[in-house]
Amino acid sequence: MLATLESVELLEQAEQLAKMVLESDIAEQYQICLYKLQNNKESQRKINRFVSLKELYEEVQRFGKYHPDYKKIMTQIRENKREMDLDPFVAEFKLAENDLQDLLDAISIIVGGSVSEHIKVPTGNQFFETQTSHSSGCGGGGSCNCG
């Protein structure tokens, strides 16, 4: 592909945008929360316990309620998930992660809209849905005539 002046400028602007995101307060807060989470032994213990139980959970899911340890594993996974989610470092990280995702979603909407108002940007956040997107979110692609 031949590099045109326009494509070089576009790449430079994309790099500038990426630098702005990385230097934002939101990205900085995300990095701080990630560091705290990764360096807290109790939080890591909860996460590792949940991950190991998740492997058991996936095995149990193959057989469903007919697995001999179904109730035990299902109870353990829910209890450990709750314990992990209530950990202050995990909760703080999840909030920072959501804030960063919201920033990236907003940027995607702006970039997509600058190309065409008909571009649909999958953000996973109904707040950012555009008027041209399927408003009910039923996934039918408009075939149900609800949008």
Score class of each variant (00 low, 15 high):
residue 59 E to Y: 14
residue 74 M to T: 05
residue 125 N to D: 05
residue 108 S to L: 06
residue 90 V to L: 01
residue 58 E to L: 00
residue 51 V to E: 15
residue 37 L to R: 04
residue 115 V to M: 12
residue 64 G to A: 07
residue 46 K to P: 09
residue 1 M to H: 10
residue 33 C to N: 01
residue 133 S to W: 04
residue 8 V to R: 07
residue 39 N to A: 01
residue 68 P to R: 10
residue 119 I to P: 06
residue 64 G to M: 13
residue 139 G to W: 00
residue 87 D to S: 01
residue 38 Q to I: 03
residue 106 A to P: 01
residue 14 A to Y: 08
residue 96 A to C: 02
residue 46 K to L: 15
residue 18 A to T: 00
residue 33 C to E: 07
residue 38 Q to W: 01
residue 61 Q to L: 03
residue 8 V to F: 00
residue 88 P to K: 11
residue 40 N to Q: 11
residue 141 G to S: 04
residue 100 L to W: 09
residue 81 K to E: 11
residue 81 K to W: 10
residue 71 K to T: 14
residue 131 Q to N: 07
residue 39 N to F: 11
residue 71 K to Y: 09
residue 120 K to S: 06
residue 97 E to M: 11
residue 90 V to E: 00
residue 138 C to P: 02
residue 83 E to S: 11
residue 46 K to S: 05
residue 60 V to Y: 04
residue 5 L to I: 15
residue 114 S to E: 07
residue 84 M to G: 04
residue 35 Y to P: 06
residue 127 F to V: 11
residue 46 K to Q: 14
residue 116 S to Q: 11
residue 45 R to K: 14
residue 74 M to S: 08
residue 65 K to N: 03
residue 102 D to G: 08
residue 116 S to A: 12
residue 36 K to Y: 13
residue 114 S to L: 08
residue 30 Y to S: 08
residue 59 E to W: 13
residue 20 M to W: 03
residue 6 E to K: 15
residue 45 R to F: 15
residue 62 R to I: 05
residue 103 L to V: 07
residue 11 L to D: 06
residue 84 M to V: 14
residue 15 E to H: 15
residue 2 L to D: 05
residue 13 Q to A: 14
residue 57 Y to K: 05
residue 35 Y to D: 14
residue 12 E to T: 08
residue 128 F to Y: 09
residue 133 S to Q: 05
residue 50 F to G: 05
residue 97 E to C: 11
residue 98 N to D: 14
residue 134 H to M: 05
residue 96 A to H: 02
residue 129 E to H: 00
residue 147 G to N: 12
residue 105 D to P: 09
residue 143 S to D: 08
residue 36 K to T: 12
residue 139 G to F: 02
residue 71 K to H: 07
residue 18 A to V: 02
residue 125 N to P: 04
residue 104 L to N: 13
residue 12 E to D: 02
residue 81 K to S: 10
residue 58 E to D: 08
residue 17 L to V: 12
residue 67 H to G: 01
residue 121 V to L: 09
residue 97 E to V: 09
residue 46 K to W: 09
residue 9 E to N: 06
residue 97 E to N: 13
residue 129 E to R: 01
residue 7 S to Q: 11
residue 11 L to H: 06
residue 64 G to I: 14
residue 81 K to R: 15
residue 72 K to L: 15
residue 37 L to Q: 08
residue 46 K to M: 11
residue 85 D to L: 04
residue 123 T to M: 00
residue 129 E to G: 05
residue 116 S to T: 00
residue 68 P to Q: 10
residue 92 E to G: 13
residue 34 L to W: 15
residue 48 N to L: 11
residue 112 G to D: 03
residue 82 R to D: 15
residue 41 K to V: 04
residue 47 I to G: 06
residue 60 V to C: 01
residue 49 R to A: 03
residue 124 G to T: 05
residue 111 V to H: 00
residue 137 G to L: 13
residue 4 T to Y: 07
residue 101 Q to L: 13
residue 93 F to C: 06
residue 124 G to W: 10
residue 59 E to L: 13
residue 138 C to A: 08
residue 18 A to D: 11
residue 127 F to Y: 13
residue 30 Y to T: 02
residue 26 I to F: 02
residue 45 R to A: 15
residue 12 E to F: 00
residue 116 S to F: 06
residue 38 Q to N: 10
